[in-house]
Each structure stands twice: as structure tokens, then as C-alpha cells.
Design a protein around this nucleic acid. Structure first.
Lengths: 247, 247
DNA sequence: TCTGACGTACTTGTATGGTAGCCGACGAAC
DNA sequence: GTTCGTCGGCTACCATACAAGTACGTCAGA
């Protein structure tokens, strides 16, 4: 993870400031370090990160396109609340693309593909034993990405990744649920088993069940953390009155 | 359509300069008014549109995210050539999403939905008779968007729209093909007919055939206009030597 | 004629200044 | 006590200035 202080040091390696700021903010938002509803001032962020407003502003525009922040001109920029409708839409996109890719994947999967997927499964089980949900999260991403790549549709993963952002913010909170990770690993395993057998129907059923499980978990989180979710209206949040103690 | 001169006049109605510039450039790129490979200088565009570099630059960043322009730092920004791999990927995304939405649509379609779709079909036939491919293009977009909305997945249309951009640039040139539009309208009609009958399998087959037809047309265009297409390498184009006669 | 160094003109990236508009608190008028 | 106008402070938006880097045309030299 790139800290705010290490931002300039990382600049040397090819990526420009905008991309670094974008990735930093996106990580913080998806990881719920920045909670839905939080205000994101261009000025404050620029000062905090030690860069000018320009790359910060450009990053916020990109995050706005993804729906991760809401920009209200002359009012402020805020981390978006999770909109139930956006979650439903994201689930549809994800399911449609991953299942379509899997159908092609079953036909094309080779021995090497199965081995790579099983290696990821082992890593996930290991992450569970260590009680390391962050690593599980990363390997989960990689698993689903590889699964699409097997069918020759690795390029389309970025589309899923975009849609998935809205799901992921809620999912983070679902992982600590009782025995959640072992269940997810088992579901992943079922998919790979069917894939190895060349069982298209079984693979599809297993993956659909898995994705719907994830979707259901989001609903559970919605009951427990309603403050992260917003209605489907577009009412701008209230600006936080500035306390005197901060600088 | 917003002309360069009318840009400031339109600013009054809610949208800011960045959005106007973005829409203008996107329209010109997808409509092939700006050809693949063309250089897009931030300075030149700003001068031409009578705005500063900032909104132009921000628009180019967004277009870069969509893959419609390639930004090479300290070198230039160019309208991207149509990458065959991107077309294949876009086709996959489109097909997966539209077909999944259609499966839900057949179950939920009401009389009103069918009437609206048929109205669009009539408009498309009319546009064909008038020899007005631009109007057909617009109504084609609307048809596919409505078709997804029938299944309750109107929100996901924007994802298709993003992916479709790469297909559309080539499609523009395919419409003048002999009797192309009547064929497309017939295929649209087949889908609606099956939808009205509640024939899920028939609707899916018809829509898949239609989308593959569009995809095949792109290949035809690729043969006739290879200059619009690029390899899958990322070699930056050459900068155009500046002639003295300009300004 | 060909080759290579170099200056110049262009590019995008970043920083900073100025503007219009919105919110919320405060105070006067009723 | 309630309502309305005003004012201060904040916001994002746009414009502009500066910095870093690339490519191409020119010209000297072999």
C-alpha cells in the first residue's frame, strides 16, 4: 500500500501523480477507510498528500465517473453512499459476464489453467487459516479474473471490476461473518471441480450460486450497517461544520 | 448537435464546460469526424472551442479511460485506432449483457413494452426510406437500450454503451452497405416478435444472430478501411509536421 | 551524400490564481 | 417567537503559468 508520504517516492516508477492519487483514493474508498458520506475537499486532500489540486481534482472526476464519489459543483465532493439499485445493477453485470465467460472457459480449459486456479484456492484457504481477510480479498479478485481469462475474456475483467466496486464496499464487512471465508472457498472449489470435469452446466450452477451468495451477504450487511447505504434519491449530504480544534 | 460556437451558450443549461467538451469530442470521434490516428492537441482544441486547457484536458482523460484516445505523456494525444482485440472484447460484453437482459425481459414484457419497441421499429424503417442513417443509428441505440430496460436492466445499458463505442466507429461505415439497414430492422423485428410470443429461446437466438451480424460487418469494414484499424501493439503514432499555411 | 549532434517548437503534467455559486449562521424586522 | 435578508466562508470550476520531456528540422562534419 502506498502511504501519503511515500507518494512522491513512487512517482519515479512510470506512473504519474494522478494515477497514484487515484489508486490511493480508490483503495481507501473500497476498503471503507473513507466511509460513505465523508467529505473529500480538493484542497484538503492536496495538502494532505503534498501535491497540487490538479491531480487530486482529476482523480475525483474519474472516481465520480465510477460512481464512487458524488461531485456537487460549488458544494463539495463526497464518498457516495452505497445505492441499492447500483448494487443490483452491478450484480447483474457481474453475473452476466462471469457466467458467459465461464461457458467459453469450460470448453477451452487446459490442465495448466486448472492448476493455476487450484493454486489460488490453496492460497485462499491459507489466508483463511491465518485470519487474513485482506489477502483473501486479493486472491478472490485474482481467482475470478483468472476464471474469465480461461475463456479468453480476460480483457472484460476490467468491466466487472468497475461494476464490482459497489459490491465490494459492502463485502468487506461481510467477510468477518461466521465461517464466511471457508464457505466461499468451497464454492470456488466446486466451480473448479466442475470445470475440470468439463461439466458446463455444473460449473455454471456453482458459479451462479456463489455470486448470488455474495449478493445475499450484501443484504445482510445492509441490515447491520444502514448508515453506509443511501436511498435512490440524489439529495446532497450536509456539509460538516468545521470545528475549531482542527488546525 | 452542439457547434463549437454555441458551446458557451449551452453552458447556461446545467451542464458544465467539461461535459460539453466531452460530449462534443466523443460525438466527433464515434462519428468518425475525427479519424483514428488524428492528433488532438489540448492547446489547439482549447483555442478552437474558446475555452481553457483545463476542461479540454479533463475530457481527454475521460476519453482515454474509455479507450477512445491514447495519451502519450510529453508526446501527444491521438484518436485511438480501432484495435481488433478491443472489438472482440466489446462484442463479448455486449452479447453477454444484452442476452442476459433479454432472458429476463421475455418473462416480464408487457403489452406497453412491445408497443414502444414496435414504434421504434417503425421509426427505423422510416429512417431507411428517407435514407437517413444518422437517425437510424440513434433509433438503433434506443431500441437496444429499451430492450434491456424491459428486463429491468436499463441501468446496465451504460456499460454496454461504453463497450459499444469501439464497435460503433466501424459500424458507421457499414450502414451504407447494400440493403444493410433493412436487414437490421428485420432482425430487430424478429426479436420483438419472439418477445411478444413469450418465446425465450427464439428471442435469444434472434438477438444473438443480430449481434453477430453487426460483428461480422465490422470485419468487412476492416478489409475496406484498414487505415482505421491498428495492430494490438501500442506504438505511438508519428507527430504531424506543422505546415506554414495554417494561421 | 550520409551521419550525428543540437536547438527549437511542440507536447502533456503539475501548480496556482481568480470566479461564481451554495450553505449556514447571525441579526434585524415583524 | 418567527421569518427574512445579509454576510462570511467554503466549494468546485475554469484560466493561466511554469516545468519536464519528446521529436523533428537544421546544420556541421566526414
Amino acid at each position: 500500500m502506498v502511504s501519503a508520504n511515500g507518494l512522491h517516492a513512487a512517482r519515479a516508477r512510470g506512473r504519474n501523480t494522478r494515477q497514484l492519487v487515484y489508486e490511493l483514493l480508490r483503495t481507501r474508498i473500497v476498503g471503507l477507510e473513507l466511509r460513505p458520506g465523508a467529505a473529500l475537499s480538493e484542497n484538503d486532500l492536496a495538502a494532505e498528500l503534498g501535491v497540487s489540486r490538479t491531480p487530486v481534482r482529476e482523480s475525483l472526476i474519474l472516481l465520480g465517473e465510477e460512481g464512487l464519489v458524488d461531485v456537487y459543483p460549488q458544494l463539495g465532493t463526497f464518498v457516495s453512499r452505497i445505492r441499492p439499485q447500483a448494487v443490483v445493477s452491478a450484480q447483474f453485470v457481474r453475473e452476466a459476464l462471469e457466467l458467459a465467460a465461464l461457458r467459453d472457459g469450460v470448453a477451452q480449459a487446459g490442465e495448466r489453467d486448472v492448476l493455476e486456479l487450484r493454486a489460488l484456492l490453496a492460497g485462499q484457504a491459507e489466508a483463511d487459516r491465518r485470519g487474513d481477510p485482506e489477502t483473501f480479498f486479493r486472491l478472490d479478485e485474482e481467482f475470478h479474473a483468472r476464471l474469465m481469462a480461461v475463456g479468453g475474456h480476460g480483457d472484460a475483467w476490467s468491466v466487472v471490476g468497475h461494476a464490482k466496486a459497489h459490491l465490494d464496499r459492502a463485502r468487506r464487512l461481510s467477510l468477518p461473518l461466521e465461517d464466511r471465508i471457508p464457505l466461499l472457498v468451497q464454492q470456488h472449489t466446486d466451480v473448479v471441480d466442475a470445470l475440470e470435469r468439463g461439466d458446463a452446466g455444473g460449473a455454471e450452477t456453482a458459479l451462479r450460486g456463489h455470486l448470488r451468495q455474495v449478493f445475499a451477504d450484501v443484504e445482510t450487511i445492509r441490515d447491520r450497517h444502514p448508515e453506509l447505504f443511501g436511498g435512490d434519491d440524489t439529495a446532497p449530504p450536509r456539509r460538516q461544520p468545521r470545528t475549531k480544534e482542527h488546525r
